[in-house]
């Protein structure tokens, strides 16, 4: 291990590249355009809180997903992990099904479910040498299966009004608690990526896994750890989404896989691994959430929202990356 600390390459997450500035520019441009289109509604305190609240779940998922993608792997299990953790959380909390109330213990157990599913992905991927794409696809359905079993055939479990259900949208510090939680996880993720062996190993494995192995690094151990972290992020996201909705649903995570992976890639993290970072994913998430919110506010017909949303994203990302088009690593 002492050798490991010496040879871990110092990936360059600290430098702010023109590409990042491009993405931030695209975000700023979107905000300017939507503000111009909706002068009285877009930049209001209510809407800013709405956007931040909506960004919180994909931000949390984005932290785990970025670390996995930095390693050159992929984690498709987020929706299953969210469902399993969300259902575990609500059934162990005070709910209308009157199952059991463990209080804060419910969060601990739900987190453990997410961490265990992440561990399962990591172990299957590293021990059985099955590509992460396939393993996490399987774990997605394992998670969904657990959630479905927990949901069973009884009535939908609801959280009682007030209390923990109201927590995410409360804003004692000006911004919703859900966003503060996401912020804490993002900052923790940034610190892990920059200042710990785990973060550097993610960059090293994504940069060139064989070189990392040849240098005697414990690649498999760190891979498993990263998947565990991603599982933990999935669990937190599942718990938060369940609190926001106030009801249990096995499919509480539906739609989040696409948003998360898209946000990571749009932010500029390479699907090939080794390049990018959590700070970029934050910009990617905000781009997607602002776009979604802005289109609704601008009165764009829902029939064309998908197409407009896709087109705007392509233009925004292409424009942001235009100056660097010769140097980009294209993953086919």
């Amino acid at each position: 291990m002492s050798a490991a600390t010496h040879v871990v390459p110092t990936a360059s997450p600290r430098r702010v590249s023109p590409r990042e500035l491009g993405e931030v520019g695209a975000l700023v441009l979107l905000v300017v355009v939507f503000t111009a289109l909706n002068p009285s509604t877009f930049v209001t305190l209510t809407n800013i809180r709405t956007v931040l609240d909506q960004a919180s779940v994909p931000l949390i998922l984005g932290v785990g997903a970025t670390l996995v993608i930095l390693m050159g792997s992929i984690d498709l299990s987020v929706e299953g992990v969210m469902g399993a953790a969300g259902m575990t959380f609500i059934l162990l909390s005070d709910n209308t099904r009157k199952t059991v109330d463990l209080g804060a213990g419910a969060i601990v157990v739900a987190l453990a479910v997410g961490l265990a599913l992440g561990l399962l992905s990591g172990l299957l991927h590293t021990r059985l040498r099955v590509p992460s794409f396939i393993v996490t696809l399987g774990v997605w359905f394992v998670g969904l299966g657990i959630a479905t079993l927990l949901f069973g055939e009884s009535v939908i479990p609801f959280l009682p009004d007030g209390g923990i259900k109201a927590w995410p949208s409360h804003h004692p510090l000006g911004v919703p608690n859900s966003f503060l939680l996401a912020l804490v996880i993002v900052v923790a993720g940034l610190l892990v990526a920059r200042f710990t062996t785990l973060g550097r190993m993610a960059y090293a494995i994504g940069g060139d896994e064989q070189v990392a192995r040849d240098n005697g690094l414990a690649v498999d151990r760190y891979k498993v750890l990263v998947f565990v972290v991603a599982g933990g992020c999935g669990a937190v996201a599942g718990i938060l989404a369940t609190m926001q909705l106030g009801a249990g649903s096995a499919t509480v995570g539906v739609g989040n896989l696409f948003t998360t992976i898209a946000a990571v890639v749009i932010g500029g993290t390479s699907l090939g691994g080794g390049r990018g970072g959590i700070h970029r994913t934050v910009v990617g998430v905000l781009l997607l959430v602002v776009l979604q919110n802005g289109l609704v506010l601008s009165g764009v017909s829902p029939n064309v929202q998908s197409a407009v949303s896709g087109a705007v994203l392509i233009v925004a990302v292409a424009a942001a990356a235009w100056p660097l088009r010769d140097r980009l690593r294209i993953v086919t």
């Binding site: 209510t46 709405t50 909506q54 926001q244 909705l245 919110n293 506010l297």
Partner: peptide, 12 residues
Amino acid sequence: QVAFGVTQSLIS
């Protein structure tokens, strides 16, 4: 979940 998000935006 989708309805929740859309309603939030429409409230804004």
